[in-house]
């Protein structure tokens, strides 16, 4: 039961969506873009989200694409995770997405919604961070395209009135060897204790993490340590652990010390799994 009322709009074009947002802003009304809208409901019902207007992006054509354009695979932000999994164009994304929430919920949760979520795991961003994808954002200043690694700092840096439209990923990354492991507090249900996604480009291993810190990240320093072939594998992992961003989460899913213990083993598994452990 959402304890507030809002106006609901379902614009058919990018421009209409942006104009709506701006006209609401001019009236000092707070509005929110949604696509799956699961956080509007689950956080709204416990008073962690409030809005006076909801702008539903689901009908906008640009947000629904899923296709190759030249060497790039383009995903629209309002695609549901289930749809992405069933189509399976980007196996690493399929694997990482398939561990989010549960299957039925993923029929509602969208790619853009997950990447821009308030709940800080945002696991589906990991493959895009690894693949140096490009993001297309639209806002009052028009469309802009930027490398995700420039614009995703803990979360996608969106200005008021902007939203994510598409992500484009170079084919080379889609075909690269990968690993994605989600470790939970216990068994197969629940938020991540740690989710690790990794790609191997040539001899280089790329690693991105969720659930370790209160934000997902990919760290150049961590990767450099892991890829330092002059060191034995244990030292590489130790060095990587020393380069982690802070804070390390310490919550009901697990203590920070335990998370580091789990991460150490996961990094070994990643290097071994990608044949980079020698």
């Amino acid at each position: 039961m959402l304890p507030f009322d809002f106006d609901y709009y379902k614009p058919a074009s990018l421009k209409e969506a942006i104009d709506l947002y701006q006209s609401k802003a001019r009236n000092r009304e707070k509005s929110m873009f949604i696509s799956g809208g699961t956080e509007l409901i689950t956080l709204g019902r416990i008073n962690l989200v409030h809005t006076e207007a909801v702008i539903d992006l689901k009908d906008i054509a640009e947000c629904k694409v899923m296709q190759f354009e030249g060497d790039y695979l383009v995903f629209g932000s309002t695609l549901t995770l289930t749809k992405i999994e069933e189509t399976n164009l980007f196996p690493l994304l399929t694997k990482t997405a398939s561990e989010v929430a549960d299957h039925t919920s993923r029929g509602k949760i969208t790619l853009g919604g997950n990447i821009c979520a308030q709940i800080f795991y945002r696991e589906t961003v990991l493959p895009f961070l690894l693949a140096d994808s490009q993001v297309m954002i639209v806002g009052p200043d028009g469309v802009k395209v930027a490398p995700i690694n420039d614009i995703f700092k803990e979360q996608l840096q969106l200005k008021n009135g902007e939203f994510l439209v598409q992500l484009a990923t170079d084919k080379r990354f889609i075909e690269a060897p990968y690993i994605s492991i989600k470790r939970r507090q216990q068994w197969d249900t629940g938020y991540p204790l740690i989710t690790v996604a990794a790609l191997k480009m040539g001899e280089e291993v790329r690693v991105a993490l969720s659930g370790l810190c209160p934000f997902p990240f990919r760290s150049k320093k961590v990767e450099d340590s892991l890829n330092n072939r002059e060191w034995p594998i244990n030292d590489r992992v130790d060095a990587a652990l020393a380069e982690l961003p802070r804070p390390i989460l310490n919550d009901v899913e697990g203590s920070s010390d335990y998370r580091l213990f789990v991460l150490r083993n996961l990094l070994h598994d990643v290097l071994e799994g990608l044949g980079a452990s020698f």
Binding site: Y8, G36, G37, T38, I41, T42, D56, K58, T82, H103, T104, S105, G107, K108
Partner: peptide, 13 residues
């Protein structure tokens, strides 16, 4: 055709 948690969907959707 797809399963949906009806608590996660607005009626207007």
């Amino acid at each position: 055709g797809w399963p949906m948690k009806s608590c996660l969907m607005l009626a207007i959707e």
